[in-house]
Design a protein around this nucleic acid. Structure first.
Lengths: 221, 221, 221, 221
DNA sequence: CATGAATGAGTTTTCATTCAT
DNA sequence: AATGAATGAAAACTCATTCAT
């Protein structure tokens, strides 16, 4: 069993900034996975978008799957961080709820990569998220926010419909996510450009109307 | 992508029924693509789920992409066929609109594979649908139906809110699709089983409430 | 998710003899694994020794491990086939047992690759053999042969020592295998060329002497 | 392969004891190589089993191969040290030879890692041992011991068979080594647990019987 | 002495697609 | 119409080894 020849000594310049290296990898991976899906994404391609090599991806993330999980995790962490900054406690309940709906609308519109990652992860039955701790109980601060708004709305008598905060979040999310996530098939089917500025304003107002109407409708419960 | 050969059944059918073979392939491909996505789906695996061989897939569908397009086409055709059968013209507008929402809800719940294919195709920016004729103009009979219901509702004065039929379709679809398509991540995030029968009934009623409230709210216009 | 470009159509000449292809692969793999061990053996190298490509190795054997298992299996099958042909029933028990010992000696000397494969497999704790059925109870016809010789020897009163046939097989095997398998370290340690023709004749006679003496020693049992 | 740097312990031992560090590395390497072979053994894994890092392995041993050689060297040195302690000069030749056989038997049984390393090194055609000085002439004290026993046996007329001490050592070793080294394949082939305590006692007695019978058989010369 | 970061060059494995029969 | 054999190209992953600090 003669030994295989030893490898050559590399002489290239190396950088020394692990955080930066990892962040760069995650940025490239986010783009690649969002663009081509998990199976369609190429580790080689991700590496090429980076100043490091494919080897470092495995060094830091262990596997393609590990990298995807890290991408997901960071994407969710960023959303949460954004949600932390929302402050609508100074608005009256109706204005607050409408504002929150519009923030969600705007956020999803301006983060199509995140929406795509979420779709992709659902396509995989959230199997990657399942491998992570911390996803479950870190539920969005948006829920707590919604709960405060609802509470004030009921106290002030402006909201008549009793509704669970998570359900309300789902109503808003489903509308805002669908418009972005399904715009291609929906747009193709009905020959509409869902992203046109005309439809954009209309839909932005619409989700507010829907939610406010739903909560304030007389006679509801 | 070589076009699928004109399916002229020859006089000498040696082995089996070509239609049947193709249907079998499409069934297997639907399962595989719905399960693993377009990139993740394996031609070998599809062939293995069939009584024919991989070669036949290429014979009939030309390529993996051709097969996926055929799968999509058939899936949409089936949905349309189902929609054709809906008849709510005998109900009053409010009941009709709620019934339609619930039909959509039920349909999506019972066709998760279709929902998955649509998500996957959106992930691909509907690039495969674009290769097909007949998608655009064959827009859903559901729109026509909605238009008739809306018209009656306005005429009878029960609907106060002016709304475009396609927009209304989107409101309903977004809710019903989201619940199925995003159930994995949403469920993981909020520790909920979106498919539980308890939530199922609640959400089924909810989408009707939302739409009816939205359309009938006083002062809306 | 734009599709990756399609592969080119190969235009090379292909052969059509699966049995031959598989045999060729197994021949090359036997050499490579015997030479470099399981971990040290290279699938690329095996393919290069063949008129086919690496791809065919995976087509027929599924994995490197599957190939190694097939190599082992064939190696053992060949030994068994050889053993089937041994015929010493016409010799008197003492001559028969000596002849059998010498056959074993000669066989191992002339099949160093087999001996190496066995060593390698023991290094892996026979983990690959364990994945195969058919290894266990296909115990060597040599055992049956030994049993017949022993029986005749006891009946004729020439063998005095009672011994289990498998144990006897082990006595013979250990000597013959050790000389080949451990010749490198043993030879290095004692500065001997275990394969020299002088030592060869001496050891060939010796294993016969050992076994015959052991079986015929007066007062044994 | 860079030579191991002269191990001059510097005045300023910052972290830990170098001897201890090296011993720790050798322990881990022995386990790893014995378990997975030379090619199969992973430098990363060895480092992980240690309180130092991979870099230290290269610092002390220069390369993977240098480490393996060091492991082998230490293993043989230990065996030799043990052999030095054997004292059977006070026993009569027959008892002494049986005792020596049993000591060898016991030693190999209780040092399976050593047996594995030897097998692995033979698999590599003792190519690593060749890189070391001191292996050849440091041949086992056991040979000298055997020579003394044989001499006494012939003088006292209890041994009739003339035999070379190294050959005798091989007879004993082959049996004892084979039982341990080839137990997996032999055990699988004949459905036996070679390490069972029943077989253990039987084989322990057997190797003594074989050797004693061989040496004392009347008429042998 | 010590160590986390980095890497070039493999190495195994996969996959859509096509050919000869 | 049907099929087992074959394949080029690439994709994921690994490994011994070295550098900067």
């Amino acid at each position: 069993m003669p030994a295989r020849p030893a490898r050559k000594v590399p002489a290239s310049v190396r950088r020394r900034d692990p955080d930066r290296t990892q962040a760069e990898i995650l940025d490239a991976a986010t783009r690649e996975f969002a663009e081509r899906g998990y199976s369609g994404g190429r580790v080689d391609e991700i590496a090429a978008q980076t100043r490091t090599t494919k080897r470092m991806i495995y060094y830091y993330f262990g596997s393609k799957e590990g990298l995807f999980v890290a991408v997901l995790q960071r994407a969710y962490a960023r959303i949460r961080a954004l949600e932390q900054q929302i402050d609508v406690d100074h608005l009256d309940p109706v204005a607050a709820i409408r504002h929150l709906a519009e923030l969600t609308f705007d956020h999803h519109e301006s983060h199509p990569d995140f929406i795509r990652l979420v779709s992709i992860e659902n396509t995989h039955r959230a199997g990657h998220m399942g491998k992570l701790d911390g996803f479950v109980k870190l539920n969005s601060p948006a829920i707590a926010l919604l709960e405060r708004i609802l509470k004030r709305g009921y106290a002030e008598g402006v909201f008549s419909r009793r509704v669970d905060a998570v359900d309300l979040h789902m109503i808003i999310s489903s509308f805002c996510v669908f418009r972005v996530a399904n715009r291609h098939t929906f747009g193709a089917l009905f020959a509409r450009d869902m992203m046109s500025s005309r439809l954009r304003s209309r839909y932005r107002r619409m989700i507010g109307d829907i939610v406010v109407t739903y909560l304030t409708a007389p006679g509801a419960d």
